[in-house]
Computed example of a mutant assay.
Amino acid sequence: MDTLTRRLTRAAIWSGDEVRVREVDIPDPGPGELLVRVRLATVCGSDLHTVSGRRSAACPSILGHEAVGQVVAAGPGAEREAGERIVWSVTSACGRCARCRRGFTAKCERVRKVGHESFTGDWPLSGGYAEHILLPAGVTTVSVPETMPDAVAAPAGCATATVMAALEAAREPAGRRVLICGAGLLGITAAAACAEHGARVEVTDPHQERRELAGRFGAVPDTGGPVDIAFDFSGSASAVATALSRLDLGGTLVLAGSVTPGPAVNVDPEAVVRGWLTLTGVHNYEPRHLVRAVDFLTATLGHRPWHDLVADPVGLDEIGLALGPAPRNILRTSVAP
């Protein structure tokens, strides 16, 4: 008898000091909800921060918010049908509050987040490290083309979509000088996206393996000169300060990596005023950015080696391996529940 017929599924539950796989009930999808069979989940850095104690999170919970899966059941009024292969957003928004009406659904006043909710609450099956996940009506979903491998599609729901939001915040990069601080998956993706737009892209990272990897995605080593756009995906205060000092007249600095507390960075208001500088931040993304993420990955499948960035998956029972250290030239480990 298969898992769905038994009305049970298996999930890896984080309890604060360990991850243990157990059987849990499969809920029936309600109005607008989708029950999805997870095909592959990649391990984001924020999940590694959670299990290492660097980041607080609901506990117990099912972690994992970067994933791709196949719809197995749809509630009344749901926008997808059984059989569709999809990726989904990190956030679930109400669509009605003042923030949602302003276009900040990622910061909805009632926001709930995939892979961040308590297992003992009203949305227990909320994370990707499980055989099934239940997606509420407020979660954005995008269909994935058959040509796109699971390992390429899964990061679209976090890393790739966040980069699309960062590019929008930086405005048009075509023909401009771009500096990317941090060559993790976000930095590598940003390098490829800016290069696709015709920018000259320089990358800085303390690890030689990642600097070399960035070269396969359109970046060159940092030359130390002035730039028009700088992105920080490292979260390093010193990198942020250096990037800010490198901005030429009218330059823009987009911060996306500073997601944990760290040292303050000095900002000279006169330099900002006289230099017409822009300093902005991006955290999570809007539905349009997830659509752009899938479109971007689809368009670059043939000439960017995305599949090389994700390790071969382990099974759910071996999730501890995926949550451990990985080689620096592997930017995501993965789990195939």
Rank of each mutant, 00 (worst) to 15 (best):
G235A: 10
R54G: 05
H197F: 06
N284F: 05
G127I: 00
G302N: 12
W14G: 11
P136C: 00
P60A: 06
P149L: 08
T105G: 06
V38T: 04
A82T: 02
G121R: 02
A311F: 04
A214L: 08
D228Q: 15
Y285C: 07
D47M: 01
G198T: 02
T298F: 03
E117T: 01
L186W: 05
G281T: 13
R216S: 15
A183T: 09
D17R: 03
V36L: 09
P76K: 15
V291N: 05
C94G: 11
V282C: 04
S143F: 00
L213D: 09
N329S: 15
R80E: 07
V43E: 09
D25R: 01
A12S: 05
I229W: 08
A154T: 02
R176S: 05
E18Y: 05
A82H: 04
A169T: 03
I229D: 08
L297W: 03
R6V: 06
W123G: 12
P327I: 08
T120H: 10
I319W: 05
A161P: 06
R210A: 11
A57K: 01
C44V: 07
G30T: 11
L297V: 12
P261R: 10
L297F: 03
L301K: 01
V19S: 11
D228I: 14
V87T: 12
A82S: 07
L8K: 02
G184I: 07
C97S: 08
G315S: 14
P327G: 11
R304C: 04
P269M: 09
L34T: 07
W276F: 10
H283W: 14
I133T: 10
P149C: 12
E131G: 08
R288F: 12
D308W: 03
D17N: 13
E84G: 04
P261H: 03
H132M: 00
V68E: 06
A299V: 07
G30Y: 01
L255C: 12
R274N: 11
A130M: 10
R328L: 12
G103K: 11
G95Q: 09
V310F: 06
R200V: 13
D205R: 03
A322L: 13
G32S: 03
P261G: 01
G250I: 09
P29M: 13
R200M: 14
P173M: 09
R246V: 07
V291Q: 14
Q70I: 06
D308P: 08
S236C: 07
R7K: 14
G115H: 08
H197Y: 00
V24T: 12
R7C: 06
G127D: 02
P287N: 02
L244H: 15
V43H: 07
